[in-house]
Amino acid sequence: MITLLIIEDERSLMESMVSYLEPSGYRCVTAGTFHEALRQIDRFDYYCVVVDLNLPDGDGLKIIKLLKENQAKCGIIVISARDTLNDRILGLQTGADDYLVKPFDLSELNARIQSVIRRTRYTGFNHILFRELIIDPEGKTAQLNGELLDLTRKEFDILMYLITNKNRVITKDAIAEHIWGDSIYGTDYTEMVYTHMKNLRKKLQQKTGTDWIQTVYGSGYRITEE
């Protein structure tokens, strides 16, 4: 089973992350302080560690250094309220594989975790299977019954995001932020999301005959396995 270590001093945030990630098939080990994190580090072979930099009794960067020395194959994602370029660079230089600024969407955290695990654990062939789809995250291609789907880059990214968070409701805000990042804020992105989503669904429907993606009234979309 894929085991994750979540180091976060804010209990409420930690619980929310665990609630979202465990149903996705992960085992979540948690630590609320720097010292607790030190104790937990050696207990398992973690696929990914999610670490908050601001801990009440220590610096999250030190944990990253320790992890890099002891568990080379472990992916590391920093979650922090510090959002300057320098903070990000420092986090990544210390050894983190990704940097997520608080507040974030759980679906985004999940997508990042899967991406980091793919990069650090699997080499070579690394395909994702979803219903009849075979997805190559590196090549950014999707095949359906041996036939390549003609998706634009953004359509592929949205599909990948939905599949990563399958059976979950993903808001259009979360999709917009995932695709365009922070800079989308302040623009009227609803129509943009809608346009891409409409095209993606049309292309999928043409090949499968059914619409895999459900619209959840007023809030977002959900891709289902059945």
Binding site: L13, S16, M17, P103, F104, L106, T171
Partner: peptide, 9 residues
């Protein structure tokens, strides 16, 4: 962050 995560859950 708590509000956002809880509403997502």
């Amino acid at each position: 962050a708590v509000i956002r995560l809880k509403s997502e859950l």
